[in-house]
């Protein structure tokens, strides 16, 4: 068990983030340190490395390793219909509100991970009969996870949680309607995801690339410190049409961001905000 005591010090993390910034132009220095440290520790264990310096050495010398690093660093744990009550509010209030004045809807999943949230959204829209009116953009910092999201194949053993969430969401049918079992995987029906476009995008350093009626960025900013949360919120704000909606995770808050006053709280329980000022 000696490896569990190979503790990483904050100075080593600073050295790593500085190196990455200089070499790859990615900014990790404003990530929430407790989680960042644990991810790095996990990576040292995975690659059987003793020190952060060894990790830096590999990053510096091994071609293509950085992408793998980003992939390991990013937390890609999610579920379909996570927080079922949120999805009900979305179906009953938010989407109908957007559709009052529009005959189409544009949605951005910022930090889409392996795509479970996109599947959930598509099912919601499909069951509302407006899937063909939707333009969905899904982005993530991790190229390999986007590929996974695109494939939309999920281990059958994960589907139990997803089915339970769907039941709590009180969907029209059963989740099985939307996938086919192939071997040990649930393969999501391709037609469901026809209106989704995927792209690699870094919330921290990427630019504002479009405007949306609805932006979902749930449990993504929790990996950032407050400085970075604030900065990212500016980007999300710019990416919303006036009176568009922003959704964050159920335990996230905007109150300490300097542009909090440009939003109003639509649903505090589910952390749904509406942009009221440009």
């Amino acid at each position: 068990m000696s490896y569990t005591m190979g503790e990483i010090e904050i100075t080593e993390l600073r050295k790593l983030t500085t190196f990455i910034q200089e070499k790859f132009d990615y900014n990790f220095k404003d990530y929430a340190m407790s989680s960042f440290r644990r991810r790095i520790k996990r990576m040292l264990d995975l690659y059987k490395l003793q020190t952060v310096d060894e990790l830096i050495h590999i990053l510096n010398t091994k071609e293509g390793f950085f992408e793998e690093f980003v992939s390991e660093l990013t937390v890609n744990v999610t579920e379909m219909f996570r927080d079922p009550t949120f999805w009900r509010v979305l179906r009953e209030h938010i989407i109908p509100n957007i559709m009052l004045n529009h005959n189409k809807i544009s949605i951005w999943h910022a930090g889409c991970s392996s795509g479970e949230e996109i599947v959930s959204m598509s099912i919601v829209l499909d069951e509302m009969g407006i899937l063909d009116k939707a333009k969905i953009v899904a982005t993530d910092i991790d190229r390999s996870i986007i590929a996974k999201a695109k494939e939309a194949r999920y281990p059958l053993k994960h589907m139990e949680v997803n089915r339970k969430n769907y039941l709590r969401y009180q969907g029209k049918y059963s989740l099985e309607k939307y996938y086919t079992e192939v071997g040990s995987e649930a393969v999501i029906n391709k037609a469901l995801l026809e209106n989704v476009s995927y792209r690699k995008h870094d919330l921290v350093q990427g630019s504002v690339f479009s405007k949306f009626d609805l932006v979902l960025c749930r449990n993504v900013m929790i990996y950032f410190n407050q400085t970075l949360q604030n900065q990212v919120l500016h980007r999300l704000h710019e990416s919303l049409f006036k009176y568009g909606y922003l959704v964050i995770g159920s335990k996230e808050s905007l109150i300490w961001c300097d542009i909090a006053h440009k939003f109003i709280v639509v649903n505090n329980e589910e952390k749904i905000y509406k942009k009221i000022k440009d």
């Binding site: 904050i10 929430a32 340190m33 407790s34 989680s35 644990r38 937390v75 744990v77 999610t78 996570r82 449990n219 929790i222 990996y223 410190n225 407050q226 995770g249 159920s250 335990k251």
Partner: peptide, 22 residues
């Protein structure tokens, strides 16, 4: 610690939450 989140203590006197693996 809230339901379905890990709770960590952060340097700089704050609490952070995350949705890492079980």
């Amino acid at each position: 610690a809230p339901a379905n989140y890990h709770m960590a203590v952060e340097l700089g006197n704050s609490v952070s939450l995350n949705t890492e693996e079980l």
